[in-house]
Design a protein around this nucleic acid. Structure first.
Length: 276
DNA sequence: ATTGAGACCTGTCGGC
DNA sequence: TGCCGACAGGTCTCAA
């Protein structure tokens, strides 16, 4: 389910019931998500207040009054459910077999993490662990921040022998793009996903025109997706090229046909006519 | 250091 | 109906 826009929508739903509230009860129903839970997970959460709920790339970060940070990732199939009138404990018939973690907050809300494939992650980090985190500390810029622009993108792609698609999926290049929005952004920018990443930069790492277009396309695609994801369900809207193999290219007067091919074991959708 | 392949796990969908 | 393979919005590890 979740790339940056969807994770941002989840943040928006959790924020009002979690920020300022304390963990009253924490139930770990299955401790074997992608990374094992720390032994003292429950003890370190109960009684703590959530000072802020933020997002970094596809991670949700709950800053706690203890100075620890609760890090949450939805993986491929993770989601949160918020029950405001559920009382202290959810009724048995409200529990799904993939409900792995249940937070009862002092706001009265019960927040349940559900994840069929269990690719999701929950970890509790000290300030030191957070600062040195092998993934979090190496993430690229937030695509919608001023730190991300054509210059930053070109610098990150300089010398890269991989394809543009692979470079965009690499969270060190830019943080938060996934398989759908990488394809979408490349189509908006008119750039082939098969093109060498290094070709959008000069040898010294300065942005070429393609980098300018790609950076702008990424911002545009994500901004629009956030606006839509905030409203209704994630999958409600369809996309320009994603899952549209065989359909005509949506670019006016292009006339191409959208193609699907596999890169890095994942589907890429693109128009071979207007994406060069 | 970079890169691609395979692994992780469960569910769904289409074809036979 | 049942079985089987392909595929799914993400990382992580490993070997070249």
């Amino acid at each position: 389910m979740p790339e940056l826009p969807e994770v941002e929508a989840v943040r928006g739903e959790l924020e009002p019931v979690m920020t300022g509230a304390r963990f009253v009860e924490v139930q770990v129903r299955r401790p074997d998500l992608r990374a094992p839970f720390p032994r003292d997970f429950r003890a370190r959460l109960i009684g703590q207040r959530v000072d802020a709920l933020t997002r970094r790339a596809k991670y949700l970060l709950a800053a706690l009054s203890s100075r620890d940070t609760l890090v949450m990732h939805l993986g491929m199939s993770g989601s949160f459910r918020v029950d405001v009138s559920a009382g202290r404990r959810p009724a048995d018939d409200m529990v799904d077999r993939h409900d792995h973690v249940v937070f009862s907050m002092s706001s009265g809300a019960v927040v349940t993490f559900n994840d069929p494939r269990r690719f999701g992650i929950m970890e509790l980090l000290t300030p030191d662990q957070l600062a040195r985190h092998s993934v979090l500390s190496r993430l690229g810029p937030e695509p919608l921040s001023s730190h991300f622009n054509a210059a930053a993108l070109a610098r990150a792609c300089k010398g890269k022998k991989t394809t543009l698609k692979a470079a965009l999926l690499d969270q060190r290049t830019v943080a938060g793009l996934g398989n759908i929005y990488a394809s979408e952004a490349l189509h908006v920018a008119g750039l082939s996903p098969l093109r060498r990443a290094s070709t959008i930069a000069t040898p010294s790492g300065a942005p070429r025109e393609a980098a300018v277009r790609l950076a702008a396309a990424i911002k545009r695609v994500l901004t629009r997706a956030i606006d839509r994801a905030a409203g209704r369900g994630y999958r409600s809207s369809r996309f320009r090229v994603y899952e549209r193999a065989g359909e005509p290219c949506p670019r006016p007067r292009c006339g191409g046909t959208i193609r699907r091919r596999v890169q890095l074991g994942r589907s890429t959708f693109y128009c071979p006519v207007c994406q060069r």
